[in-house]
């Protein structure tokens, strides 16, 4: 009888010890994964929303500049007073660049969705950051050059004998200035996007 009881006790102890180890490992892993995933998923969602806002700003800038032509009410048979964005090469560059920026942002939305679905993946996040940096540069270049010309159109320059044209084409200048402001709003959103990507990439 004593021998029989000894046989029964041994497997019970060993089995409970093994069962005790496995759950601890599983629980620890689950906790780690869910914590960091949630944090990065929040950043990814914020990234997506900022991207939508930047699309609106960029396309608004391109559309406003593209439709900012103005014709003065008086004209002669041989001379017509008209101002349009394609009279100035810098404004042409502005329209093209802002349209490209808007197009890139639309195409980058699926990649942003991937970062929401897989918060811990680094490849799509890194791709977004590199592309965002490049497009941020293009956006900044377009906005600043158009701002310089717009300022010149308003104020002119005595030293170079460049006369201001906004005294005659008031509406044209107002619309072009509005487009430039919208482009700078897009620049701010892009800067925040790049910083968010950097923060999401950091090790934890």
């Amino acid at each position: 009888m004593k021998n029989e009881s000894t046989f029964i006790d041994v497997p019970a102890e060993s089995s409970s010890a093994m069962k005790g180890k496995a759950p601890l490992i599983g629980v620890a892993r689950d906790h780690t994964t869910s914590g960091s995933g949630g944090y990065n998923r929040g950043l990814a969602i914020f990234d997506f929303l900022l991207r939508l806002a930047a699309i609106v700003a960029a396309l608004a800038a391109a559309a406003t500049m593209g439709t900012s032509d103005e014709t003065l009410p008086f004209f002669t048979q041989f001379l017509q007073f008209e101002a349009s964005y394609d009279d100035l090469p810098t404004f042409q560059f502005f329209v093209i660049a802002m349209a490209l920026v808007g197009g890139y942002l639309v195409l980058s939305l699926p990649i942003s969705v991937v970062t929401i679905l897989r918060p811990l993946a680094t490849a799509p996040r890194l791709l977004l950051l590199v592309l965002d940096t490049g497009v941020l540069a293009l956006n900044t270049a377009a906005a600043s050059s158009a701002a310089a010309i717009s300022y010149l159109a308003h104020s002119g320059n005595q030293n170079t004998n460049w006369l201001p044209i906004c005294q005659q084409f008031g509406d044209f200048c107002q619309k072009s200035s509005g487009a430039v402001v919208s482009a700078f709003v897009s620049v701010v959103f892009f800067t925040i996007l790049v910083v968010i990507s950097g923060v999401a990439l950091k090790r934890h």
């Binding site: 810098t90 941020l136 900044t140 270049a141 600043s144 310089a148 010309i149 010149l152 790049v194």
Partner: peptide, 22 residues
């Protein structure tokens, strides 16, 4: 670096537009 890149590009692009016009 991101902010400074933006600033540098603003200055460079604005001046490029004026130099082109000149």
């Amino acid at each position: 670096d991101t902010v400074m890149m933006g600033l540098t590009l603003m200055a460079a692009s604005a001046s490029a537009a004026i130099v082109y016009l000149a």
